[in-house]
Amino acid sequence: MTDPAMTDAPTVVPITDVVLETRGLTKSFRGFTAVRDLDFTVRRGTIHALIGPNGAGKTTVFNLLTKFLAPTSGHILHDGVDITAASPAAIARRGIGRSFQISATFPHLTALENVRVALQRRTPGRFHFWRPESTLAALNDRALALLAEVGLEARAQEPAGTLPYGAKKALEIATTLALDPDVLLLDEPLAGMGREDVARTAALIRRTAQKENGRRTVVMVEHNLGVVADLSDRITVLQRGEILAEGSYADIAADRAVREAYMGTGHA
């Protein structure tokens, strides 16, 4: 007797279970190798955390994945397509959204406009210089809903530059979510946030990952290990540009090499 699922009914198989992949990715800066021969795989629908001590190359990996840096050698694949040569804007249009370590907002635009400018990218009107701004009003409701998700609806009309740091980080996440990304890359999303904001943002990241029937993928660099343990399906530990360990939080926590890297035991 055979398993019916194996024979009948054409089961919907995703194009590939691996959404992001790097092969032999290397980045050197004038002789200093920040990322060395990295083979890194992210499975679709997971929350994947990238941790490691300062200078381990986490942000470099992020900038390589989003094409803000060009790799010295190696390849990057998204949905099985080689994207090593694509521009940052092209990567974003493929559905890879990112946030920045130091909050990246448009300071002279209001919070609402910040989110709206991300929504605007999919409209044909982004190049219309002869039409009034009011044609964008159709996007306001969606922008306000996104602001509400991060608890900023009351500050929608304030210029982003005047918001406190935690609010800027939240605004950045709302702006990235406006892209409705397939893969969300978050570079230290919780850094500089107060305890309340951390809890809300962590919940938001979890909620976000569950959208699109759980097919959305989140890759994050984060130092708050409590949140990482709580949210992540899989954790990769980087050290000096190489993978030190990979697995669930329990695996990682039990790994001797990781403990040494973090605690410094075993090193002079």
Binding site: A89, A92, G97, F100, L109, V117, Q120, R121, H128, E133
Partner: peptide, 22 residues
Amino acid sequence: SPFGQVLKAVRDNEARARSLGY
């Protein structure tokens, strides 16, 4: 205009505008 909005975003933070797909 809608174009002006994007332009101001580019002025304020070019890297961010790129990362939004512009």
